[in-house]
């Protein structure tokens, strides 16, 4: 583990009306580690993810990428740093098919003049999508049907495959296993380890403590928009995590 986090947030604040979704939140993730981000419903996890993936304007606070301060004001900018996100609401276009969703915003043009006219190389995009789904063990049956007609788990698999395929620096997975079956969940946890081993920083959000303890290296706990504790996954327990989330166990080490 390197000493400088690949991505670090310092004192992020963001209010929605009277709700302080982020209230001086800190966060850090290193390259090649899995950080689990946990917290009760409404703790601000999704909001933090949006802020760190260029989808949210902040009231205050700073974001550092590989030690240097960055101004993440658009998703495109986050992707150019290799930051990818599986949003809680997946952010797929329901009328487009799996391959189109996989490459949306990053289409492969046809070679030569045709490509410059805007024609797309659908064949290689389909082949690469298929390979990505297979690698994930995803049960995406058809590449030509609109994803809106697919099951929740299939959609989730597509969103995960997309983020994994493009993530070079950091990947955020906001409750990626919420809709998945047992086998698919195992696949996703496996994928998380694989991505980590490639040197990517993985941020895993989940309400399932067993999964968190299974896959994470460190666990950071968010409560009321603030990081209240950080644990080594090996040295903590479900009880301790639940205590930190609910506030029953204040004064935790960090």
């Amino acid at each position: 583990m390197t000493t400088i986090p690949v991505l670090e947030a310092r004192g992020l604040t963001r209010s929605f009306g009277n709700v302080r979704a982020l209230d001086g939140a800190d966060f850090d993730v290193h390259a090649g580690e899995v950080v689990a981000l946990i917290g009760d419903n409404g703790a601000g996890k999704s909001t933090l993810v949006k802020a760190l993936s260029g989808n949210l304007a902040l009231d205050s606070g700073s974001i550092l990428f590989a030690g240097g301060e960055v101004d993440l004001n658009s998703p495109t900018q986050a992707s150019s740093l290799g930051i990818e996100t599986v949003y809680q609401d997946l952010a797929l276009a329901p009328h487009l098919n799996a391959a189109q969703n996989m490459f949306l915003g990053r289409e492969i043009p046809k070679p030569g003049f045709q490509g410059r006219l805007g024609f797309l190389d659908n064949k290689s995009m389909r082949a690469k999508s298929r390979a990505a789904f297979d690698e994930l063990g995803a049960t995406v049956r058809s590449l030509s049907d609109p994803v809106g007609a697919m099951s929740g788990g299939q959609k989730q698999a597509i969103a995960i495959a997309r983020a994994v395929a493009w993530a070079k620096g950091v990947i955020f997975l906001d409750e990626p296993t919420a809709a998945l079956g047992v086998v698919q969940t195992k696949n996703v946890l496996e994928t998380i380890r694989r991505v980590r081993d490639k040197g990517v920083g993985v941020v895993f959000i989940s309400h399932s403590m067993p999964h968190v303890l299974d896959v994470a290296d460190r666990v950071q706990v968010l409560r009321l928009g603030r990081r209240v504790a950080t644990y080594e996954a090996k040295k903590t327990t479900v009880e301790e995590l639940v205590g930190a989330m609910t506030g029953a166990l204040d004064g935790a080490h960090s």
């Binding site: 989808n55 997946l90 952010a91 797929l92 329901p94 990053r106």
Partner: peptide, 10 residues
């Protein structure tokens, strides 16, 4: 199909 999704992927 989804303006928000399109925006998020750039």
């Amino acid at each position: 199909s989804s303006e928000e999704s399109a925006r998020r992927v750039g």
